[in-house]
């Protein structure tokens, strides 16, 4: 079964949300529009809507996360769902119990949705293939493969700042593309939304093989890569990269690829700077940029809630509609 068939039902509705790859322009737009309608809710005094009342959502995190898990939890609560957080430390993992056993046990508690983060690429697909048909799976990050809700909240942020026409935008993603699930999902989302130009900027050690096949232009020089761009997305650099002989030092990385006010001068005057967080100040960018007027880093976090509400309500609706149809047919 292809990924598209796995996450979209025969009516074209989103059943699971595993990867951006293969989803249509109209589904991505629907996610953004739905998120827009929820953005108001999160700003209200009473921050709740009853859309998912009575539903149970399990946040199943096999990898540490603060931001993503918290915003998923808030999104679920604002939709009036019951939320259960389960953190499973992969290293001390589930003694003897297989992943599938873990899944079956949780299913037996009448769960309606799993939000899964796992260190292995393909983990969310694996869950989606094996859950009972009434359960939705949302990918909260699998290995280096995909982090689709992060990519959509970034698209939401770009649309809010730059307007709905992605065709006139140049976007550069800077940093560790190789190990980044965020970058992969962003690239698919930007291309599906017909972005004018998508660039990646990194030293060769951090660019995956055949990166151009993802639909990007590859740059190894920061100034050339961000020249005239409208949006710059900086990626987090993990310390392990120094040990894996990917880079010599944070110092040289910042010297060559760190974003400073001075460097920003070659970009479009209205350039927007983004980062999925958490930031290493002085490694990916200096504080002047991170806290400066072009940065929308904190807005990204806020938008994460609305986007996750949108995806949760859309996948649940696909299931509820399908169930209603079945009842009618009986």
């Amino acid at each position: 079964m292809s990924s598209t068939n796995l996450q979209v039902d025969d009516q074209g509705r989103l059943r699971h949300f595993l990867t951006i790859e293969g989803l249509s322009h109209s589904i991505l737009t629907e996610i953004l529009d739905t998120a827009e309608s929820f953005a108001g809710v999160t700003a209200q005094q009473v921050k709740k809507v009853p859309l998912l009342r009575g539903k149970t959502i399990v946040n199943l995190f096999f990898e540490a996360s603060t931001r993503t898990r918290t915003t998923f939890e808030l999104a679920a609560k604002r939709l009036s769902a019951d939320v259960l957080n389960i953190n499973i430390d992969a290293s001390s993992a589930v003694k003897g119990e297989t992943l599938l056993d873990t899944l079956r046990n949780l299913e037996a508690m009448h769960v309606d949705m799993f939000v899964v983060r796992h260190a292995d690429s393909g983990a969310a697909h694996f869950f989606a293939r094996h859950v009972a048909p009434h359960i939705s799976v949302l990918n909260a990050g699998d290995g280096r493969h995909a982090h689709p809700t992060q990519a959509m909240l970034d698209m939401f942020t770009i649309r809010r700042v730059k307007g709905p026409d992605f065709g006139r935008l140049r976007v550069a993603i800077v940093g560790d593309i190789m190990h980044s699930r965020v970058a992969r999902s962003q690239i698919h989302a930007l291309n599906t939304l017909n972005t004018g130009e998508v660039r990646i900027v990194a030293p060769k050690t951090l660019v995956p093989v055949d990166a151009e096949s993802l639909g990007v232009q590859v740059f190894h020089d920061l100034e050339a890569g961000i020249r005239d761009v409208d949006v710059i997305i900086m990626l987090r650099l993990q310390r392990e990269r120094m040990q894996g002989a990917m880079l010599p030092s944070e110092h040289e990385y910042f010297h060559l690829f760190g974003l400073t006010e001075q460097r920003l001068a070659v970009a479009d005057p209205d350039v927007t700077v983004m980062h999925p967080g958490p930031i290493n100040r002085g490694v990916e960018m200096d504080s002047q940029v991170a806290d400066g007027p072009r940065s929308v880093i904190l807005e990204q976090v806020t938008h994460g809630i609305a986007v996750r509400m949108a995806v949760m309500s859309m996948t649940m609706r696909a299931h509820t509609d399908a169930e209603a149809q079945e009842k009618q047919n009986v």
């Binding site: 790859e21 690429s121 393909g122 699998d142 290995g143 280096r144 493969h145 995909a146 699930r181 992969r184 995956p208 093989v209 055949d210 990166a211 096949s213 993802l214």
Partner: peptide, 15 residues
């Protein structure tokens, strides 16, 4: 295999 598919799927590649 370290190639276009592993790049897309985010699977650790073997060159």
């Amino acid at each position: 295999h370290e190639g276009a598919v592993a790049t897309r799927l985010g699977l650790p590649g073997i060159p």
